[in-house]
Amino acid sequence: MEHIRAIKEDDQRAFQQVYACYHARIYGFILQRTKSEYVAEEVTQLTFIKLWKQRGILSEQLSIDVQLFGMARQVMIDVLRKEATRFKYEGEFAETPFTNSLIDAIESKDLLQILERDIQNMPKMRRLVFELSRKQGLSHKEIANIFSISPKAVEYHIGKALLQLKQHLYSIML
């Protein structure tokens, strides 16, 4: 948490320490999901740029890795959306940094609509907890207070939601 406070106070040395500590981990995280070195490099750099730009709104209640990996996920989604749109308007598949399976998933299955439909088909409580967490960015404690449940119950619902989405995505990526 001390790194967060220091970064919020414009401490470039603390930022450099976080960068040195997490750069390879973020890169590996994105590479594992996209199978593209280009996307992994791009997303990693954009994630740290976003961290610096949004340093004033970092939460001191969440660890730096949770916030950083959350940013990386969002940046990855943004980059993939932009690439999907670019492919759609180009009308052909030139050489791309993506694997064929990822391009196929984005182009032929409209991945975002599938995810949204899966979310809407979740049991009501699971869907509400998941949307408050992932779409509105509320903490587990905040969600627990809203529904008068324990933070562990919130974790359970989010875990089940993520598992459901991952299983479905895995099945369509094959």
Rank of each mutant, 00 (worst) to 15 (best):
R25L: 11
P123C: 08
Q136F: 08
Q17A: 13
G91S: 13
I4S: 07
D110R: 00
Y156P: 03
L132R: 04
I106E: 00
L128F: 03
Y22E: 10
Q67Y: 12
F29C: 01
F48S: 03
R127N: 03
E142G: 08
L128M: 11
L174G: 01
A161K: 02
F15M: 06
D78Y: 14
G28F: 10
L138S: 04
N100K: 08
A20E: 11
M122K: 00
V154A: 13
F98Q: 04
S148R: 08
P151V: 09
R81W: 07
I77W: 12
M1T: 09
Q113A: 08
K53E: 15
A40T: 04
L132G: 05
I77R: 11
E107Y: 05
K53P: 08
L174M: 12
Q45L: 11
L111Y: 01
T85K: 15
Y156I: 07
S108A: 09
L174T: 00
E83A: 03
K160Q: 06
M76F: 10
I149S: 07
S59E: 07
E92K: 13
S133E: 13
I4Q: 12
R13W: 15
D11T: 03
H140E: 15
K141Q: 15
H3S: 14
I143G: 01
K160I: 04
Q16M: 13
A84R: 01
K88S: 14
A40E: 07
Y156H: 14
I49V: 12
R33A: 06
S59Q: 05
Y170Q: 09
V18I: 08
D65M: 04
P123R: 14
M125Y: 04
L68V: 07
I26E: 06
R25I: 05
Q12V: 12
I7P: 06
T85Q: 15
V43K: 01
L46F: 10
G70D: 11
K35P: 02
F29D: 02
E142Y: 07
M122C: 02
R86S: 10
P123F: 13
L58V: 03
T85Y: 15
E116Y: 07
R126E: 11
L102W: 04
N121A: 09
K152M: 14
Q12H: 10
L111N: 00
Q67V: 05
S139W: 13
L62R: 07
A40C: 13
A94V: 14
A14R: 00
T99K: 15
D104R: 00
I77M: 05
S101C: 04
S63F: 04
M173Y: 03
L163Q: 06
